[in-house]
């Protein structure tokens, strides 16, 4: 019974995707958009500054504390 239930769900999605017309264009846009966002923008232009430059949470915390108590911020 469980297997039938899951194969029904599988067929529901498979047939739904197969019958799409406008949906195919929209899915292409979604996939291109996600590719641009995650494989280009995130990877090459939006590194997580603290993750990239520090290896432990303690180092990250120390850096942020330095930033918010150091002279660089208070002079602004």
């Amino acid at each position: 019974m469980g297997q039938t239930y899951f194969s029904d769900i599988y067929r529901f999605y498979r047939n739904g995707f197969q019958r799409m017309t406008l949906g195919k264009t929209l899915w292409k846009i979604i996939l291109i958009k996600l590719f641009v966002m995650f494989a280009i923008l995130k990877l090459f232009f939006f590194p997580d500054f603290l993750q990239s430059n520090f290896s432990t949470d303690q180092e990250r915390a120390d850096h942020v504390l330095e930033q918010i108590t150091g002279p660089a911020r208070q002079n602004n």
């Binding site: 979604i30 958009k33 996600l34 966002m37 923008l41 995130k42 232009f45 939006f46 590194p47 997580d48 500054f49 603290l50 993750q51 942020v64 930033q67 918010i68």
Partner: peptide, 18 residues
């Protein structure tokens, strides 16, 4: 429109790390 808001989270990590 879906996922356009995710970019805001990218910006947090890069531009607004403190």
């Amino acid at each position: 429109g879906v996922a356009t808001g995710i970019i805001l989270e990218f910006e947090f990590g890069t531009n607004w790390s403190n």
